[in-house]
Structure formats: structure tokens, C-alpha cells
């Protein structure tokens, strides 16, 4: 089977979505009692679990502490059963380390770290099932977990990927579309201010098309924002009804 048709002439993608549509996003907050904040998020078949600890005192080497703001410590890992072929080790490989760094950059930009000098915030994310857009799912899950932990942020961080296939920008790529090897942009956005927290692109894309793809990605991020915001509101509603009647 040489080359699946990723975008049919009628404008459908392999899974039946149209070019600008997201996969179904479902999320729950506060899934663990032990952690300060936690969230579980599904983006189609990509499933991510995030927990947040902190802000707390520096653990491990104190020398790393920053005198004017908090240190954001991230760890990204993928469950051994998350991919088609079983993974050897869940984290610490090259890809995971890179992803860890990306997460760290994203959240340093979003969390108001200057409020907590000399302290540390830990964000641990795990992918339970990988079906494309792992980074985006992680960011979205971590945002919810951070909110759950009550850590002040500038804004939600919403992430979504976009690709460019057959001269059309596609939002929120799944695994099949990612594996086809076309250009892919991952964008993390602070939706209210339209600021970009992180932008990553792999493979080659002609300069003239970049704008279109970026537009599609930021549109997708805003769609994600709408969903996340609803989740948070529902959660708060639920908690208040439980606590205060």
C-alpha cells in the first residue's frame, strides 16, 4: 500500500475530519489526591496524564535555585505500552529529553515564576497512548494540572499541531498523518494575548506557506482553549457544589 491518501478530493482526511477540525478533546482535572495538581487529557487517541507539585523548596542540589524566580522542573515520559511497538525505557532517551526541554521552556513562559523566588515547581507528564500530537497533549494536560494546583499563570497555554499536505494546512495531526513525513508545526499559544510560548517545526516548508500553516495552528489552539476553559469551569463548578453546597 504505497502512500495513503491523506486528504481526499472531497476534503476528508483519513479519519473523516475536514482540514481544520480537531480531534475530540476530553479532559478531567484533579485525578490524584496525592499531588498538588493533576489532570488527564485525551486528544483523540492520544492520552496524557500530568501532575504538578509545588511551588516548594528546592530539592536535590540547592545550588540550582534561582534568586529571583522559581525553577520549573519538567519530566516527560512515555509509557512502555503507549506505542505500537513496546518501548524499551519510558524516559531519558534523546526524544524524551528534548520534549522535556520544550515543556520547560513553554511553562517558564507561562507561569508567573517571579512570584516564588528560590523555589521549585515540578511538572511530570506521561503519555499513556501515543497517536500523534504528543507534545500538544502534554502541554494541554500540564496546563490543566497547573491550574488545578493553583499556580498563577499569565494565561492558559494551549498547544496544537498543524501540517501541510496537498497544499492545504491540516490542524491537529494524528499518527498516520505525522508518519507520512510532511512538514509539521507544533505551536503553544497564550490565546488571550496571542503570544507564542513555543513554536517548533520539522521537515521543510516553503516560506510562502508558513503563514497559512501558522494561521491554521493558532486557530486550532484557540479551539483547544475553548474546550479547556469549559473543562476548568465544569471542574470548579463541581468542586464548589461538593464543598459549599
Amino acid at each position: 500500500m504505497a502512500g495513503l491518501e491523506l486528504l481526499s478530493d472531497e476534503g476528508y482526511r483519513v479519519d473523516g475530519r475536514r482540514a481544520g477540525e480537531l480531534r475530540k478533546v476530553r479532559a478531567r482535572m484533579g485525578v490524584f489526591a496525592q499531588a498538588d495538581g493533576s489532570a488527564y487529557l485525551e486528544q483523540g487517541n492520544t492520552k496524557a496524564l500530568a501532575v504538578v507539585y509545588g511551588p516548594h523548596e528546592m530539592r536535590g542540589s540547592r545550588s540550582k535555585a534561582l534568586h529571583d524566580r522559581a525553577l520549573v522542573n519538567c519530566q516527560y515520559s512515555m509509557a512502555t505500552f503507549s506505542t505500537g511497538e513496546r518501548k524499551r525505557r519510558p524516559h531519558g532517551d534523546r526524544k524524551s529529553s528534548e520534549m522535556t526541554l520544550h515543556l520547560k521552556q513553554t511553562f517558564e513562559a507561562a507561569i508567573l515564576t517571579q512570584l516564588y523566588p528560590r523555589s521549585q515547581i515540578d511538572i511530570y507528564v506521561q503519555i499513556l497512548q501515543a497517536d500523534g500530537g504528543n507534545y500538544c497533549a502534554c502541554v494541554n494536560a500540564a496546563t490543566l494540572a497547573t491550574i488545578d494546583a493553583g499556580i498563577p499563570m499569565r494565561d492558559y497555554v494551549c498547544a496544537c499541531s498543524a501540517g501541510f499536505i496537498e497544499d492545504t494546512p491540516l490542524a491537529d495531526l494524528n499518527y498516520v498523518e505525522e508518519a507520512a513525513g510532511g512538514p509539521q508545526v507544533a505551536l503553544a499559544l497564550l490565546p488571550k494575548s496571542d503570544q507564542i510560548a513555543l513554536l517548533e517545526m520539522n521537515s521543510r516548508l516553503h516560506e510562502d506557506h508558513l503563514e497559512q500553516v501558522m494561521e491554521a495552528a493558532s486557530k486550532a489552539c484557540k479551539d483547544v482553549y475553548a474546550v479547556l476553559d469549559q473543562v476548568v469551569r465544569d471542574h470548579v463548578h463541581e468542586v464548589t457544589t461538593l464543598l459549599g453546597e
Partner: peptide
């Protein structure tokens, strides 16, 4: 959007169970 998760059995060398989304 409505969503359906489709269970496919794809043959790729050996039999692997692939789960793909299918939106209606």
C-alpha cells in the same frame, strides 16, 4: 462532531491490532 473508535486489525509483518479514530 461525533466520534467512533474503530478497531482494525492491520497486518504489518505480523498481526498488530491498530486502533484508529473514525469521525462521523
Amino acid at each position: 462532531r461525533t466520534e467512533k473508535v474503530l478497531q482494525l486489525r492491520g497486518l504489518q509483518g505480523r498481526s498488530v491490532r491498530v486502533v484508529r479514530e473514525h469521525y462521523l
